[in-house]
Design a protein around this nucleic acid. Sequence first.
DNA 1: GAGACTCTTACAAGGTTCTTACCATCCTAT
DNA 2: ATAGGATGGTAAGAACCTTGTAAGAGTCTC
Lengths: 258, 258
Amino acid sequence: MGISGLLATYNPLTYLPLLSVRNMAKKQKILVVDDAPNIREVVELYLRREGYEVATVTDGAAALVATQRDTPDLIILDIMLPRLDGLEVCRRLRASASGAGIPIIMLTAKGEETDRVVGLELGADDYVAKPFSPRELVARVKAVLRRTQAESTGVDTGPTLEFGSLLIDPKRRTVTVAGRQVDLTVKEFDLLYFLARHPGQVFNREQLLDHVWGYDFYGDASTVTVHVRRLREKVEPDPAQPRWIVTVWGVGYRFEEG
Amino acid sequence: MGISGLLATYNPLTYLPLLSVRNMAKKQKILVVDDAPNIREVVELYLRREGYEVATVTDGAAALVATQRDTPDLIILDIMLPRLDGLEVCRRLRASASGAGIPIIMLTAKGEETDRVVGLELGADDYVAKPFSPRELVARVKAVLRRTQAESTGVDTGPTLEFGSLLIDPKRRTVTVAGRQVDLTVKEFDLLYFLARHPGQVFNREQLLDHVWGYDFYGDASTVTVHVRRLREKVEPDPAQPRWIVTVWGVGYRFEEG
DNA sequence: GAGACTCTTACAAGGTTCTTACCATCCTAT
DNA sequence: ATAGGATGGTAAGAACCTTGTAAGAGTCTC
């Protein structure tokens, strides 16, 4: 008996407070495709715990059938599969009318770096390397769903923001201060745009790392400090007396509108 | 010289190891599970240096017991262990109600039947291959804690409170009195927000220390007095005749609505 | 109304957190 | 390859907050 037996025996689902997929009216369906039973079960467990509806299949051919039948909201696809491998499944889904729009997260074994490129080229939305933590997978699932659903509702790039003489245009990725265009680097822009999209709200450095740098950033919180400094240097009329990017002592930073 | 002079001699703050775990008031506990004494020592040393509280055990069974007893914030778990190996410990923790939420970092020996292990390792939040640098391990610990804490604390800032012309917004960490924004320090804000969340209820200074400063604060009750004073200075229209933060003579303070 | 207790106010010391400047590393485009 | 920019990290100093003490004002009790 392997992991599956044990897990079944101690099924923790019973105790867990089901925290929810936000205020989604209906449960979202996820299809898990992997030939290893233990992976299927662990992934299923964690996704259910988050309130998703989960179906599992063990090979590529079955994946195609299940997609047709169930029209899942997202597919988690192992690359190494019997009969029809993950890349091929991905290719066929993208070619088909019904499967083209469904987001896919690929599972790859460690060291198969090349698969990432191929997978993403074929239209996968994200990829996760084994061994992965279920928590991470869940985070990615949420991120991908958020992204793709935002896209389908037309909020591709956010709106242009304006605060007095400060103009932030996400489409062009440019910032204008008092009519003068300012060149920001990628991180600088992302940081500014994130803060400005939540005016008034205080974020500590850890939260900013999560939102701007991403879930899988191994780094120090001082990174945020440095970027804030450089951002102020470029954007603020008087960097020592910031008007927009304000320090909240002992907590973090806040974007202050005009 | 009175009692106060004597008390000053024993000022407890002087002795406290004032290591900082960032802006978290409480020290975080980490459980290290490894049978190799030198690894335990090095890891413990580096983690303590970063301000974490560290416990160590040498085998899997002890790890389960220690987890139950201490409820650590994170577990560092070697795979190769006597009695009960790391994978099994991980599995059982994930299946238990109390251990399911605790993040785990696995230590794996390099080149150790990677393909087989890959499937079984699921359930940990991160993996570090031996030999590893202590710096890297510390970086990973921080990253994992950041992720998991963002999950749990990210959503639950309390509600905005309103009492007549007084507005308390925990998301922005600002207070508005009669339309005018007032800047509060961390402690001032926490104190006000705590009192305002329990309107009418009287708290003595010790209770306020417990709730706002934390259970592990060794300090004088006069601290509360000083903070109440400054809070009134900033928030009350007439600090000498407080309208909201009222003194209950001989007992403590109470927040009075409108 | 006096004494004792409690609270308010002002202030200084010490610690923590932020800013600033600088350096190392990585990536990219020439 | 190499130069340049972008990014991430570190250390010193400044700015600010926190906290304890002491003196003065207020309040309760006898």
